[in-house]
Amino acid sequence: MLVSLYRYNPETDNAPYMQDIELDIPKGKDLMVLDILNLLKEKDPSIAYRRSCREGVCGSDGMNMNGKNGLGCITPMSEVVKHDKLVLRPLPGLPVIRDLVVDMSIFYKQYESIQPYLINDEPAPAIERLQSPEDREKLDGLYECILCACCSTACPSFWWNPDKFVGPAGLLQAYRFLADTRDTAQAERLSNLDDPFSVFRCRGIMNCVSVCPKGLNPTRAIGHIRNLLLQRAT
């Protein structure tokens, strides 16, 4: 199989380039893309990429595989390889540090901008705060986000305005706290989102939904936020 790998080392390369590597794949096993990278790295240790849990929960190895963002560790070859060729690039739209490693600062900054923590200034009870299973269910499909950035870096609105548009990942978390019945800062949270960029740059392209490795739906969450903003303003 031919692997075409995006290479860039800031110390030695003036510009990034694609390196074509032929790789013999062990027969009879549907390897994951991360396994392929590990095999390549055994031969050429200079290949750089992030990885940790290798089971799709830590969100380290978001990358662009044959044109689509996803996690290398849970994307099997059978799903992604076309015509015996695999093209691996870093997540689009973020500055590349080296090879597949991108600088995620702006992504994290947007996450931090939505105050991603429970706010409840009432004195806490001696036990847990109670919450009905129905209210807890509202957090399903939201809290599972692993911050891999596959969605935000597949979003054209985020490409154009990464400094102003929160992006799908951040907005999914914004709604996770808006939807939490234990949170008391809904008004403050909404005020922070009521500008022409933070939420409203979402144009419903839904790339985020199509790439999310956890099957989450940021577009729906953004719709919920918009409805909350409208209810508050009308």
Partner: peptide, 8 residues
């Protein structure tokens, strides 16, 4: 209290 979304 920090917000961990426990099942209920």
């Amino acid at each position: 209290h920090m917000g961990l979304p426990f099942s209920r």
